[in-house]
Design a protein around this nucleic acid. Structure first.
Lengths: 376, 376
DNA sequence: CATTGATATGAATCCTACG
DNA sequence: ACGTAGGATTCATATCAAT
């Protein structure tokens, strides 16, 4: 029954239909990433007037109406269960919400077996102020990033995100503005098409951090299509679900105008693609290193001899390049590729350089060491 | 049974005992504010090694051990129920947690009838990095600020917090560093006394925003006593509960060394204390305004006549000072005190100035209009 | 064209004391 | 509890008109 759709048929389309019913027709273990922006169940009443007397137009859509927490909880349990089934074993899911609903979502997800990796805070740089001075300005929304289990081998493009964050590891609080200006979809009357269109920068961070080129990304609440737009731009595939045809119409047009850029080192996560494994034995066999030659540290000290097994020896020990360097440094472990040098033309050369030379000459692999620094 | 303790007897003390059992002995509707920093149920396993090989000392205390979510949920339901009973009708409660537990807490609180006012993000300016590069640096904790019902008339010192935030309304994301240096309690060996001591700045924001001088603040998980220390410094009363006598010993000494500063305009919330109400009729009776005199706007236009009822009239209408100004401005309502001026010695004087003159001369009340600006 | 100022608006659980 | 009158309350951007 869960196979009405074949993945290739629905790839890069927005399916028009009820969220839960549509999810039920998507096969098990079939998508790499899910981004879900469900209704928040805001529970606002009446009209909020700005200081100057005009009305604030917030969310007053039918799709955000639920009778009580119980109804909202069953709704969320149902779609989150389907997502669990549809997500691949090592895939991950992002769900965005605010204080009105995110505690329902998080509780339900943990009970369904999801494992929270981070709760990411979207710190809005330009939030709607609190007109009446009754509370702290509500300036944040929350995204729960989860796997299907504690031991899932999820994708996290650590180096790409570090590069995007001025070469410091990216934190769980993201400062991003609201979706306004040209990015915000408007209808013929100049009114916003969707009351809660998410900024592309938010989706960019989500997709670049936790998916790879060619991955399949599912959005069960596609709305104005931000997920699809960013997925296409970064070379990922998407599957959208949306019950309002008007939204689909605008989203389709929006996505059609996007160009994929897979030669972009940020979008294709070059920094995080691991180079092919090359051992000391391979370098020996191919003449990049010689049996019996001397390894030195960067100060030309701690000389050791390379054995035919690709180990390093001195009168006391024969150890791997890693263990030998760790022993010298009195640490439990250490990366020998960064520690050891050999002599070529009377100059010290890092064995890591020799390894990359081999990768380039024999495996046609060019490592990307760094990209131009991004100034935020 | 819920009356073993009389509030005056336990005021400004830390009760040694089990949290839930002790809470049961505190009377109904007896405290103004609760701050709770419960165990987070971190579920960490094994030892996390830093890059250089040393061990990271996180939370590994017995008090953070629970067998599963079910046990944690019942524990939290129990103490949150007692807090609901103990809190006054218009009091409020803060609960701090992180992604491991805050979704359990929020869900349970909403189900118990608590009404979330804000979810405050503590954005740590100096978080522990993610040593292994496996996720985004977990840089935030969350505080849920709630009342007992949607309609509770809770305390929020809006102007004090605005003043503390460089004269802009304070938002829900707070940038505050971890508790380190001299503020962090150390034992005789130089080890930290408590593994999760909260920074005073965090508690300062909590207490200054949502309580008044003389209020009673309950902390069911007193730990190292930060709540008590800040409560005492700002002129509030506290009641602490803690089951570990070692913590109480350090907390008692810490709090004993604090001096109360109630003459501090920030601590006593002078900016938020409302001036006594004075109507136009009072100013008329006391000769600050005269029947029949002319009211003008700031440009000496829109002249209206003051009636014996304290209203403003023109040939068409007789309205309150507020309604009349709103009519002129074509707004649904407006503050007439800021809009209208009268002539004294041929100069325009704001009627709000006259009102403050009356307050000063007859009610011995001096309004605080502003404090020196705080540069953050 | 550059600069200034007025206006519009964004996932919002948005007043309070008194009779 | 409920209705009514009093009177207190906004920040960061984008757009567009005016200078």
């Amino acid at each position: 029954m869960n196979n009405k759709y074949k993945i290739p048929e629905i790839l890069n389309t927005i399916i028009n239909g009820d969220c839960i019913e549509t999810l039920k027709n998507i096969p098990d273990n079939s998508v790499d990433l899910i981004f879900a922006d469900p209704p928040y169940f805001m529970q606002t009443e009446g009209t909020l007037l700005r200081t100057e007397g005009t009305a604030f137009k917030g969310v007053d859509d039918e799709w955000d109406k639920f009778s009580d927490y119980e109804e909202y909880d069953s709704f969320c349990t149902a779609w989150l269960k389907e997502c669990y089934r549809i997500l691949k074993k090592d895939g991950s899911i992002w769900v965005i919400g605010a204080f009105q609903n995110i505690y329902r979502i998080g509780y339900i997800m943990q009970n369904l077996g999801y494992w929270i990796l981070n709760d990411i805070v979207w710190n809005k740089t330009n939030p709607t102020p609190n007109f009446k001075g009754t509370r702290f300005t509500n300036a944040n929304e929350t995204m729960l990033w989860c796997t299907k289990s504690k031991n899932a081998k999820y994708t996290f493009n650590y180096k790409t995100m570090k590069h995007l964050n001025n070469s410091k590891q990216m934190k769980s609080v993201w400062n991003i503005g609201l979706c306004i200006g040209n990015e915000r979809l408007k209808d013929g009357n100049g009114d916003k098409v969707h009351s809660t269109q998410k900024p592309q920068k938010l989706l960019m961070n989500v997709i670049l951090s936790s998916s790879k080129v060619g991955d399949i990304i599912l959005d069960p609440f596609m709305g104005s299509g931000t997920t699809g737009a960013v997925a296409k731009e970064t070379g990922r595939n998407f599957i959208g679900i949306e019950r309002d045809k008007k939204y689909i119409c605008y989203a389709d047009e929006r996505i059609a105008n996007i160009k994929t850029q897979t030669d972009n080192h940020i979008f294709n996560n070059s920094l995080d693609i691991k180079p092919p494994k090359v051992g000391v034995d391979i370098l020996l066999k191919n003449g990049y290193l010689d049996i019996g030659e001397t390894f030195y540290d960067k100060n030309e000290k701690n000389a050791k001899t390379l054995t035919n097994k690709g180990h390093l020896s001195d009168p006391d020990n024969e150890l791997s390049i890693h263990k030998m360097s760790a022993t010298i440094l009195q640490k439990s472990n250490n990366n020998g590729w960064d520690y050891w040098f050999v002599k070529r033309d009377d100059k010290l050369i890092s064995i890591d350089n020799l390894r990359n030379k081999y990768r380039k000459e024999h495996l046609n692999y060019n490592a990307i060491y760094s990209l131009p620094q991004i100034i935020l």
